[in-house]
Amino acid sequence: MLSATTARFFGYYPGTVALVTAEHSGTRNVLSVGWHTALSADPPLYGVAVGRERGSHPLIVQSGQFGVNFLPLAAARAVQGAGVLSLHDRHDADKYARLGLTTLPHSPLAVTQAYLHYRCDVVNVVPTGDHDLFVGQVTEVHFDSAHYDEGGLFVGQAAVYLGRSAYVTTTQERQVYPPDDFV
């Protein structure tokens, strides 16, 4: 194994990229976020790291809420585009429309194309270097049952980011290790 001091492998890829949605005072945005994680089951907390210079940052701060959306491989172009297009660059353009994204009528932070969505209310903001970690309490969950089996196990085709604008998907082949195998 080779070792080096470099930022080249800093992204911890492969991994899923979440689309973070935010809206305040008539301005909405969607942003691709690679640094995100579940933080607690009770209460249900989810964290997303957002750069302070990003257009979504003030929308989250001012509204006190954000959405976390997971899209399948079929929507990887929109996932990539949400990270490349900037709210700062195109104030006249609706990123949702440009990327072919829609939202649920009763839940404007939920992207229709997502197989899983969390709506979160901000409960803490933790400065982490050049990003802020927004800790949100999950207050709403939407999921597309076509992507889950009867036991709630994901069986869809997740968009898995490899880095450098490349995506692959999950496979239907799986290994299951029951807990009693380790007793």
Score class of each variant (00 low, 15 high):
L99S: 12
Q113A: 09
P108V: 12
Q65E: 12
V20Y: 01
L101E: 05
V126N: 07
A7E: 07
Q80R: 12
Q65A: 14
T5Q: 09
P72G: 14
G156V: 01
P179C: 09
T21H: 07
D144Y: 10
G129M: 04
A4Y: 05
V123R: 12
G151D: 05
Y12S: 10
R164A: 05
G152F: 13
Q80G: 08
V33T: 06
T128M: 08
G152C: 09
D180I: 06
Q175T: 00
V123N: 14
E140M: 11
E140C: 06
L87A: 06
L19I: 08
S40V: 04
L101T: 02
A7F: 04
E23S: 06
S56Y: 08
H36Y: 07
V68D: 00
V61H: 01
V50A: 09
F9W: 15
W35N: 07
F66C: 03
V122T: 14
H24T: 11
G81Q: 01
F10T: 12
R8I: 03
H36I: 09
P58C: 08
A78V: 14
A82Y: 03
V141A: 04
M1L: 05
T103P: 04
L73R: 10
Y96L: 13
L116H: 08
G67K: 09
G83F: 02
C120N: 01
V61K: 12
Y118V: 07
F143Q: 13
V155E: 05
F9Q: 13
S40E: 03
Q62N: 10
G100A: 09
L59R: 03
H142V: 15
T27Y: 00
H36W: 07
D144W: 08
A76F: 05
D181T: 13
F143K: 09
L109H: 03
S107L: 08
Y148C: 06
A114R: 01
P127F: 03
D180L: 04
A158K: 08
Q62T: 12
Y167M: 02
V79M: 02
Y161N: 05
I60W: 00
S32R: 02
Q157A: 04
K95R: 08
L31E: 05
V155N: 11
F10N: 09
T171N: 15
V48F: 09
E140S: 02
I60C: 02
P108A: 12
P44V: 02
D132Q: 10
T102Q: 01
G83I: 04
V123T: 15
S56Q: 02
C120T: 00
F143C: 13
A159D: 12
T170Q: 06
F182S: 07
G136D: 03
V168Y: 08
K95E: 12
H131E: 11
H36C: 04
T37M: 15
D149K: 14
Q137V: 14
